[in-house]
């Protein structure tokens, strides 16, 4: 009888502690997700966050930074815009062709990099993962087009083929090093390249 009573007591407290742990885990997940989303700044399909590289003040902010922008630099030093969709809001997919159309950006240095669904660079035949302001071939009017495709293109080809990427989504990161004040003081409206979808396989 005594053993049975002790067993019930253990079960009683264990279930209460387990419920508390599950509730705290869920609360933390949703709070961080909502907090992260709330601080994101959209600019067409590109989004950025003022949190990246920030010397965070509160534990929520600090945890969000640690999870989403470890070792990132503050916006006065570098701005990171990331896109998971094209201009129409469709996810970027390796089976589709895309053209990134833009003009030189107001920064000392800028580049556009393609990442696989796992957030790492994608293996491809030419070892090309990014274009930057120096290695892009510009159009006569000073604009540029970057062609994302599994098929080889004549100019500014950023391959989306690769074993880890085939049939999956990918993303792009636009980095602006030492951006002009006009950029970091107006993150939602600064002119950024357009991402236009072409044909899909």
């Amino acid at each position: 009888m005594i053993k049975q009573g002790k067993g019930r007591k253990i079960l009683f407290y264990a279930s209460a502690i387990l419920a508390g742990l599950l509730a705290s885990g869920s609360w933390l997940y949703w709070t961080l997700t909502l907090e992260g989303a709330k601080r994101q700044i959209a600019n067409g399909p590109w989004f950025t966050s003022e949190l990246y590289g920030a010397q965070a003040a509160d534990p929520f902010t600090r945890t969000t930074v640690a999870l989403s922008g470890l070792f990132a630099l503050a916006k006065e030093e570098t701005i990171y815009y990331t896109a998971f969709t094209d201009r129409s809001g469709q996810l970027l997919r390796s089976k589709c062709d895309y053209v990134i159309k833009g003009r030189p950006l107001d920064a000392r240095w800028w580049s556009i990099t393609l990442y696989g669904a796992d957030h790492f660079l994608v293996e491809n035949a030419i070892g090309r993962h990014a274009y930057n302001m120096k290695n892009l071939t510009m159009n006569e009017d000073g604009s540029f087009d970057i062609h994302i495709s599994q098929k080889e293109k004549d100019l500014n080809w950023l391959p989306s083929s690769g074993e880890t990427l085939a049939g999956t989504v990918f993303s792009l990161t636009l980095r602006l090093y030492n951006p002009g004040q006009s950029v970091y003081s107006d993150l939602p409206n600064t002119p950024l390249p357009l991402i236009e979808r072409g044909e899909c396989a």
Binding site: I17, G20, A23, P59, F60
Partner: peptide
Amino acid sequence: VSAITGFTASQIMIYTFP
């Protein structure tokens, strides 16, 4: 008991995650 556990665990997690 559940609320105290949940609150304590969430505070520990939020402070120690980084």
